[in-house]
Design a binder for these strands. Sequence first.
DNA 1: CCGGATCCCGAGGGATACTG
DNA 2: CAGTATCCCTCGGGATCCGG
Lengths: 132, 132
Amino acid sequence: MPTMTAAQQREQAKVAYDAFLAGCPSRQLLDRLSDKWVALVLAALAEQGTMRYSELARRLAGVSQKMLTQTLRTLERDGLLIREVTPTVPVTVDYTLTPLGSSLDGVMRQVKAWAELHMDDVRSAREEYDAR
Amino acid sequence: MPTMTAAQQREQAKVAYDAFLAGCPSRQLLDRLSDKWVALVLAALAEQGTMRYSELARRLAGVSQKMLTQTLRTLERDGLLIREVTPTVPVTVDYTLTPLGSSLDGVMRQVKAWAELHMDDVRSAREEYDAR
DNA sequence: CCGGATCCCGAGGGATACTG
DNA sequence: CAGTATCCCTCGGGATCCGG
């Protein structure tokens, strides 16, 4: 005998992933998206369409090789971008967003835009707080 | 003699903050927003209106006291929430979003929602990647 | 008991050198 | 050019203790 009504089961399916729960995969995914470099990599690729490794390194001022490579690998694994190696000499590696990556960029770009837009508000809030 | 035309100066002012630049304050702000717990604190407070410290601790499964306190302090300093202490016994501490905090929640909530919505896509991308 | 400060270890991540 | 490998050290963050 079922312990849930059909309506309850539907509701259950709808909230199958809940980032508030520690064990939920979406919590881990949210953590990954909260990485320092993810928003910037996505924004850069969305801007340019396709970029080479060295172009990305130049655009993301201050990123280390290790972090850039690590971020790109993770994003590739998660299906957010495509990594394409062309065996020229020297070798060429191009990165391009997938549709899934573009959709994520749509939301991450807003976070980046928010930071740039409201920087002055935050700045004055800090001054007020520190002066207390 | 000026090194920029008036048009160039106007353009400069328009993009006063650019998160791609390492030294730019908005880069640091973006880094702060990319913190593990920020999105969840904002989402919880937006949901409930006002929450006590212990309520937040319960809602954000898995957060340590230290990280929760640290996150709340930073968000308060940045003008995103209000911390109100009521000298009952034992003491009560309430947290509420400011309008600025609510506006940030609007975008961060979408990131959280994206993670929950596309979890299955990411999951299957990972399986495919790992099988290669 | 609630909210927060302190201690301390291990992973995260930068700098450098090396390779296909 | 686009990485990998190594060293090394900071600091994120969990465990623990403290004030009221």
